[in-house]
Amino acid sequence: MNRVAIVSALIAFLVGLSVATFSELRVFLPAILKGAVVTVQVSILSIALFIFLSVLAGIGRARGGRAIRWLSTIYVEVFRGTSLLVILFWMFFVMPEFGVTLSPMFAGVAAIGLNFGAYGAEVVRGAITAVPKGQTEATIALNMSPYRRMTRIVLPQAIAIMIPGMSNLTIELIKATALVSAVTLVDITYAAVQQNQLHYRTVEIFLITMMLYYVLAQFVRFGGEALEEYFTRHLNRRV
């Protein structure tokens, strides 16, 4: 809690300072905040897709049959190996050639979700394999169905292990949303570049932009810490 207080005090101080110092703030801040709304939208949607794909491909790689394991491995290698920007361009410019036209928002969310899902799958796989093997053996001895084994025993323990890695990736994801400006979405970064071309206030505009991303990242960091605490406490009580 102490760090939350320090960070929010720091943010309040910096915002106050910037309001006091940067007289033209009123001119460009509304546009940047409008961009922040888009960034938050893209972030939330792609975080949902990212978590869904990570869990799916992670379980697939750790516990799937041969075909599923093979499919998830190909997914992970392809989307980890290519650059996010290339995937984004491919979705936006090449998909229409195949007759699938995606809206900029959809292309952005899909590209980011697919790319980070591949990284997240490795985190999830690592967490699942880190759950002691005896747990799985015990559930087999107790004649649990594979589905119940996963949802009741393995995943709850794996979640506590995977949260730090996943929250790091989520912060990376929020930073990566800056790329959606390449497919004509007006997010924080795009708005900042536009405003900079209008007003030539490079230092102010980009410091505010960076601070906005910093604030978003801090939300995720504290959220992740709270979740980790919740899940480990939850586990310890049961054990």
């Binding site: 800056a178 790329l179 924080i188 570049v193 490079t202 932009t209 960076m210 991303y213």
Partner: peptide
């Protein structure tokens, strides 16, 4: 904690 793209733009401008 800040995106690389923003840093590139920042330095560039």
């Amino acid at each position: 904690a800040t995106p690389l793209l923003v840093q590139i733009f920042f330095l560039f401008f």
